[in-house]
Each structure stands twice: as structure tokens, then as C-alpha cells.
């Protein structure tokens, strides 16, 4: 996951795009991961385990779980990864230009 996310964020730098994480690790482990994996994107720290308030509200029981939102904040895709994720983001960026 990390290399693909890194390249997505790098490729879309300067575009109206944001990758936002919701992380379920203990604080120290999250800090380490951000450093080690050179994460330039932000993550909410969800309380240190998989039953944090955000994961609970969003009823997330499997990781990773992905939601893609358009520029109006509407859910447009769920659980897309790899190339389909790139294509979903590209399609939504195109909508903004219209």
C-alpha cells in the first residue's frame, strides 16, 4: 500500500487532491511509520486501537478500508485499490474542471 500511496500523492501534488489517513496504531508506532515510510500526508490518530471513535462510527472492521469523496464531500467510491483507485481519483478531478 505505502509505495502506491506515496506515488499517488507525489503525482497529484499541486492538484485539488488530499489523501487522509485514519490510523489505528498506538501513537509511537504511528510516529515511526510516518518517518520510515516517508508519509507526507496527514492521518487522524484514532485512539491507538481498532475500536477508535472514527473507525467505530464508520463501522470499519477490515483494514485497509478506502472511501473516495468528490470535491463536494460526497462518497463516490468504496474499497478501490491500485489502478482502479487512480482512475477513480482522475475521474473526480476531471469533474472539478467542468
Amino acid at each position: 500500500m505505502y509505495p502506491h500511496e506515496r506515488s499517488l500523492v507525489k503525482r497529484l501534488a499541486g492538484k485539488p487532491f488530499a489523501l487522509l489517513g485514519i490510523n489505528s496504531d498506538p501513537r509511537g508506532k504511528l510516529k515511526q511509520a510516518i518517518k520510515k515510510e516517508q508519509m507526507t500526508w496527514r492521518s487522524w490518530w484514532d485512539g491507538g486501537d481498532t475500536s477508535g471513535p472514527i473507525a467505530t462510527r464508520w463501522n470499519v472492521h477490515g483494514w485497509p478500508t478506502i472511501y473516495v469523496l468528490d470535491h463536494k464531500g460526497v462518497i463516490r467510491y468504496k474499497d478501490v485499490r491500485g489502478t482502479p483507485l487512480d482512475e477513480a481519483v482522475a475521474a473526480l478531478l476531471k469533474e472539478i474542471k467542468k
Binding site: 487522509l20 490510523n23 485497509p64 473516495v68 468528490d70
Partner: peptide, 18 residues
């Protein structure tokens, strides 16, 4: 920070753990 800070941008929400 909050999600609505990013209104106007395409957002990928990624629930993840290392």
C-alpha cells in the same frame, strides 16, 4: 483537523494500520 477543511478537493480516506 477535520474532513470539511478539505471541501473543494478530491479526498481519499484510508483507514489503515501498520
Amino acid at each position: 483537523f477535520k474532513l470539511s477543511d478539505y471541501r473543494g478537493q478530491v479526498v481519499v480516506l484510508d483507514f489503515w494500520g501498520d
